[in-house]
Structure formats: structure tokens, C-alpha cells
Computed example of a mutant assay.
Amino acid sequence: MPVKFTKMHGAGNDFVMIDTISQRIKLRPRDIRSIADRRRGVGCDQVLLVEPPGQPEADFRYRIFNADGSEAGQCGNGARCFARFVRHRRLTHLQKMVVETGNSLMTLTLRDNHQVEVDMGPPVFAPRDIPLRRDQEAQEYDLLAAGEQLRVGALSMGNPHAVLRVNSVNDGSLERLGEAIRGHDDFPDGTNAGFMEVVDRQNVRLRVFERGVGETEACGSGACAAVVYGQRMGWLDEQVTVELTGGKLTIQWQGANSSVFMTGPTAISFEGTIRL
């Protein structure tokens, strides 16, 4: 089965974009794993499928699959790439569009220089909705991981995140801790593990280990989660630049029940066809 695709990335977080509107295909988890394989396939952190909307207020629907074939609920970098992709493929003429994900509606706005702004919606803090095995909501939680007692912020940005403040994102122990946190039993669906170094009130550095993927060069929802956590702890201002391995994102949050807005770059790497 030949499948046409476009390879893209948002600040180094890379995706294989597949239009299932103009080509009628159905991909199985093993097909996703084959496409994402960096040695035998195209290679990517996640595969994104463009589909017709299921809700009348949406312009498109998109589904997100991790490299291991599991489905994710949200992806900020992928959302930005999605907006540019549907314009690039002439599936829409809209500069501002509403897209349906697995668990929400998102508004995407194309800006100059291939930048895209994403309304990520408000963060979710209730433990049962993250989900996190805790009875009471708190700004931080104790977590025993890899033999260490940690204090983490936990919230959902459409997918679960655990964020830990560190002195340096270059700490050699972060890979070990990231693996232990993202598969921790206290997160029944797993979690994305973020490690945030606060430079000043308007700048942070961040590394994220994503569930179903591992460490990525950038994680948009992870950047949002880190800034929200930092604001709740009183460390950060309303607008923050997040520096990740693959580039920089701008995150804005006015607190309370307001939406988190993320703005960042998109890039098209190449296009092709893969036979599954």
C-alpha cells in the first residue's frame, strides 16, 4: 500500500504528516511503527493523520500517534505543523482554523515567517483528569522515582505532564529520571516528563521525555505545562520564552481558567511516498 506523506518539524520535534482526506487509507499500529522507524522507515517522533471533522464547528480533525504506535491526545508542535500542512497541501485557504483532536477543539492561527499560534486551551489540574493517583489537588506532589524523592508539578495540557525544576538541563541524571517518571505507576496512562531550568522570570530551558517516544528536541504541550507550573509557583511572568534543544517557543498564560497560547516555528523537510 503506497502512502504519500510530508515530513515536517516544529523546533526539531519531527512528524510524518499524512492526508487521509485525499487518499483513503487506514493505518494499523504496526504501520505507524514502520513509518516512524528511523532506520527502515521515514523516521519521526509522531505520525499525524489529517481527517475530515466529526464536529460541525471544526474545520479538520487530526489524530496523533507516537512512534510506538500508541495514540496521543494532544501535541502542540504537531498542531502548528498541522496548520501549515493543510495550507501547503491546499486543503484550506484559512489563516485561522479550528481543529478537532482526540479530546478537545483547538484554534490555530498562521503568522508571518511560518510561525503558528496555537490556543492550547486551559490547563487541567484535577488529579483524576490528568490522570494522577492522588486524592487532593496540589501545586506540587511528592514522587519517588529511580530511588529519589522528588517534588513535581502535575497537570494536563490535553495529555499528562510531570514537571521538575532542576538547576541545569545538562544534568547527567535527567535521562534516568525521565524514563522513571514517564512510566511511573502514579500516572495510570503514563506521563510526559519535563525538566525545567529557570534562567529568569521570562526565560527557561527545558528537556522533555515523552511517553511512547522518549526524549524529543521539542515538546509544545510540555513547554506549556512547564510555564504553567512555573507561574503557579511564582517563578515566571505571563509570557515566557522556552528554549528547547531544537529551538524556542513563546508561551503566554494569564492564569486561572484562561487558555495557554503557544507560538513557534514550522518547517517542511521533504515529501515522498512509502510503501507499507
Rank of each mutant, 00 (worst) to 15 (best):
P2I: 02
K4V: 09
K4G: 05
M8R: 09
A11N: 12
D14I: 01
M17T: 06
T20W: 03
S22W: 03
Q23N: 09
K26M: 11
L27I: 05
R28S: 14
R28N: 10
P29N: 01
P29R: 00
D31H: 12
R33P: 03
D45M: 06
Q46P: 03
E51N: 09
P53H: 12
G54S: 12
P56Q: 08
E57M: 06
E57Y: 01
F60P: 04
R61Y: 10
R61C: 14
Y62F: 15
N66Q: 03
N66W: 06
G69P: 04
C75A: 02
G78Y: 07
G78K: 08
A79W: 01
C81L: 08
A83W: 10
A83K: 14
F85Q: 03
F85L: 07
H88S: 13
R90K: 14
R90N: 14
Q95T: 13
V98W: 07
V99E: 05
V99Y: 00
E100G: 02
T101H: 04
L105S: 08
T107N: 10
T107M: 07
L110M: 14
L110T: 15
R111C: 13
D112Y: 06
H114W: 10
V116Q: 07
E117G: 10
P127Y: 06
R128P: 05
D129E: 14
I130D: 03
D135E: 15
Q136A: 13
Q136G: 07
E137N: 08
E137P: 12
A138N: 11
A138D: 08
Q139M: 15
Q139V: 14
E140D: 10
Y141N: 03
L144H: 11
A145G: 02
E148S: 07
Q149K: 12
R151Q: 15
V152F: 05
A154T: 00
N159C: 03
N159V: 02
P160F: 03
A162I: 04
R165I: 11
S168M: 08
S168C: 13
N170K: 07
G172P: 10
R176W: 00
L177G: 00
G183E: 01
P188T: 06
G190Q: 01
T191I: 04
F195K: 04
F195L: 05
M196A: 11
V198N: 03
V199I: 15
N203R: 15
V204A: 09
V204H: 04
L206P: 07
F209P: 01
R211P: 11
G212T: 05
E215V: 01
T216D: 01
A218I: 00
C219G: 00
C219N: 03
G222F: 07
G222R: 04
A223Y: 10
C224S: 11
A225S: 06
Y229G: 04
Y229Q: 14
E238I: 07
Q239H: 11
Q239R: 13
Q239C: 15
V240C: 10
E243Y: 09
L244V: 14
T250V: 14
Q252Y: 09
A256E: 15
F261S: 08
M262Y: 08
M262A: 10
T263L: 12
T266P: 05
S269T: 14
S269E: 15
F270P: 02
E271G: 03
E271M: 06
E271C: 08
G272C: 02
T273Q: 14
L276E: 06
